[in-house]
């Protein structure tokens, strides 16, 4: 059990955590009731999963191959930059095209706001 083995084991654990997070996000995608809740499970946990997997890959290249890959950090950066925009747009489009919230929903502040807006415009 030398140093390289220990480092490899740590990296494997980090990447495994990333995959498990991605797996949970798929479970959430299947179990949650409506489009808004699914957006949480899918895009967010996927972001954390991507973070772990790419950091693990970065550490692998740094310690095992001896190669500092800034490209992987750019990958994390762009995933974090684009995934919230897409989930925001999906939720907003869904709401604007009258996709109903799940029946278990307890609160909807936006309905009043949009409704009042339309009243004023008319």
């Amino acid at each position: 059990m030398n140093a390289i083995t220990i480092i490899e084991l740590g990296i494997a654990i980090i990447i495994l955590i990333g995959t498990i997070v991605g797996f949970f996000s798929v479970i959430g995608f299947l179990r949650l009731p409506d489009v808004y809740n699914r957006a949480h499970a899918l895009s967010k946990s996927a972001a954390l999963g991507v973070l772990f997997v790419l950091v693990g890959t970065f550490l692998f290249f740094l310690f095992i191959e001896g190669y500092f890959s800034i490209k992987l950090f750019l990958g994390i950066f762009f995933v974090f930059l684009t995934s919230p925009v897409s989930s925001h747009i999906i939720c907003r489009t869904a709401y604007r095209s009258n996709v109903p919230l799940a029946e278990i929903s307890v609160r909807d502040d936006l309905k009043e706001a949009i409704f009042v807006d339309k009243e004023i415009n008319n």
């Binding site: 949970f24 179990r31 307890v106 909807d108």
Partner: peptide, 26 residues
């Protein structure tokens, strides 16, 4: 923040009976 709230969301997802109260607040 992302790690803490991921743990919260995952614990909600893997709960056998999912009694969540989703909604929109301002």
């Amino acid at each position: 923040e992302i790690i803490v709230s991921s743990i919260v969301v995952i614990s909600i997802i893997i709960r056998p009976k999912m009694n969540i109260k989703p909604g929109i607040f301002s």
